[in-house]
């Protein structure tokens, strides 16, 4: 099973590496959103610094939607999906493989965004381990929910519009939790970020467990 997971994840990452869509389009889009927030908040440094956590995670979610769409656009071309089903690989392994590839891409994106935020908004980091742990756990939640809804939307004529309306409300708790934890780590709001991290962990466990179970049901069709 773990061999298959590595196989699927490796395939996705190799395709991404060669096609350069993630680096050439998704990453610049994410930076663009950061700049747009700067304009929208009238370059108010205090506001930008106060809301860094929230703006960061909103940007991550929007970019994640693009990355997820991309991840499943790969499968709908050339009847790849049927090939996946014919390969005899367990649906759960496909789920973990695709989610892993997404996690890797999102983590790279978050590092880049983190650098962008550090330069553009200038927050101060007070609790670096909390920051890293939050990013890691939240990313797993986003990738798990995204993989499940990604396969659902893949191949539909309305995939571009159905994915965000399904995914973003489900990720609302992740946005709340990750933002609060970041607020603590960046010292902007006095909350206990580690509690929020625990909530994020619970969310990630639920999404990963249900995703692994339900992925096969969704892969059956279309």
């Amino acid at each position: 099973m773990w061999h298959d997971v590595r196989l699927i994840a490796g395939k996705d990452l190799r395709i991404e590496w060669r096609s350069q869509v993630a680096t050439g389009q998704v990453a610049p889009f994410a930076i663009l959103v950061l700049v747009l927030f700067g304009f929208a908040l009238d370059a108010d440094t205090v506001a930008l610094r106060t809301f860094t956590g929230g703006l960061y995670w909103v940007t991550v979610l929007f970019s994640a939607v693009l990355a997820i769409q991309r991840s499943f656009a790969l499968e709908s071309a050339d009847g790849n999906r049927d090939a996946l089903r014919l390969s005899g690989i367990e649906p759960a392994a496909i789920f973990f493989g695709k989610a892993t590839a997404l996690v890797v891409q999102l983590v790279l994106l978050e590092v880049l965004l983190g650098a962008g935020v550090a330069v553009l908004y200038g927050p101060s980091v007070e609790d670096f381990p909390l920051l890293v742990a939050t990013a890691g756990v939240a990313t797993i939640g986003v990738a798990a929910a995204g993989t499940l809804y990604g396969v659902l939307a893949a191949g539909l004529r309305v995939r571009e519009t159905i994915l965000p309306i399904l995914l973003l409300p489900v990720l609302a708790p992740v946005l709340i939790g990750a933002t609060r934890a970041f607020d603590d780590a960046l010292g902007t709001v006095a909350v206990n970020g580690w509690n929020w991290l625990a909530l994020l962990g619970l969310t990630a466990v639920v999404y990963v467990a249900f995703g692994a179970l339900a992925f096969g049901v969704l892969l059956e069709d279309s």
């Binding site: 929910a145 499940l148 409300p169 489900v170 708790p173 249900f210 339900a214 049901v217 059956e220 069709d221």
Partner: peptide, 13 residues
Amino acid sequence: RRAAVVGIIAALN
């Protein structure tokens, strides 16, 4: 199938 999965996730949420 799709609706069932979405409905269950929504309730879990």
